[in-house]
Computed example of a mutant assay.
Amino acid sequence: MQEKGIINTNQFVWMLFIIITSFTAIQVPAMLITQAGRDAWLAIIGGWILDVSLAVVYGYMGLRFPGQNFVQYSITILGRNAGRIVGILFPILFLVACMLLMRGFSQLLNSFFFPTTSLIAIMIPGLFVAGYAARQGIEVICRVTEVLGPLYLLSIVFIGLLVSPSAEFDRLKPQFDDGVYPFLIGSPLLLTFYGICIIMAMFIPLCNRPENGFLAKFIAVSLGAVFASIIVVLSVAVFGYEQAANVRAPGLELSRMISYGNYLDRLEIIWLLLITGAGIIASANLLWAFSLGMSQILDLSTYKPLIYPAVLLTGMLALTSFKSNMEQIRFAEYTFPIFAAFVEAGLEIFLFIAALVLNKRGQQYDNYRSIKHGKD
Rank of each mutant, 00 (worst) to 15 (best):
M1K: 04
Q2K: 04
I6N: 10
I6A: 01
I7H: 01
T9Q: 03
I20A: 00
T21K: 01
T21I: 10
I26E: 05
Q27G: 12
Q27H: 11
Q27A: 01
P29Q: 02
P29M: 10
M31D: 15
I33R: 09
I33D: 11
I33M: 14
A36Y: 09
G37F: 09
W41I: 04
A43Q: 13
I44L: 05
G47C: 08
W48E: 06
W48C: 00
I49G: 01
L50M: 12
D51L: 09
V57G: 04
Y58T: 00
G59W: 02
L63M: 13
R64H: 09
R64I: 14
P66L: 11
Q68S: 15
N69G: 15
F70M: 15
R80G: 08
N81Y: 15
G83I: 11
R84I: 14
V86H: 08
G87S: 14
G87C: 12
A97C: 12
L100W: 14
R103M: 05
G104N: 14
S106M: 13
L109T: 13
L109W: 06
L109V: 14
F114S: 01
T116M: 13
F128S: 05
A134C: 02
R135P: 00
G137D: 04
R143C: 00
T145H: 04
E146W: 03
V147A: 04
Y152R: 09
L154R: 08
S155Q: 13
I156L: 01
V157I: 14
L162C: 01
P165T: 12
S166I: 03
F169N: 12
R171Q: 13
Q175W: 08
Q175H: 09
F176Q: 05
F176Y: 06
V180G: 11
V180Q: 10
Y181E: 12
C197L: 05
A201H: 06
P205G: 14
F214K: 05
A216C: 14
L223T: 02
G224F: 07
A225W: 08
V226Q: 10
F227C: 09
I230R: 14
L234N: 01
V238G: 00
Q243V: 06
A245V: 01
R248W: 11
A249K: 02
L252P: 00
E253F: 03
R256M: 09
R256P: 04
M257F: 04
I258P: 09
G261V: 01
Y263M: 02
L264I: 15
E268R: 11
E268G: 12
L273D: 00
L274Y: 02
I275W: 12
I275G: 02
T276R: 06
G277P: 01
A282M: 11
A282C: 11
L287W: 11
A289C: 11
A289R: 10
F290K: 00
F290S: 13
L292V: 15
G293L: 06
G293K: 07
M294R: 05
S301D: 15
Y303F: 06
Y308N: 03
V311I: 06
T314E: 07
G315V: 09
F322G: 05
K323D: 08
K323E: 15
K323C: 01
K323V: 07
S324A: 08
M326E: 15
M326V: 00
E327H: 14
Q328A: 14
I329F: 12
F331L: 04
T335M: 05
F336T: 08
F342Q: 03
V343I: 15
G346T: 03
L347K: 10
F350Q: 08
R361T: 13
G362C: 07
Q363T: 15
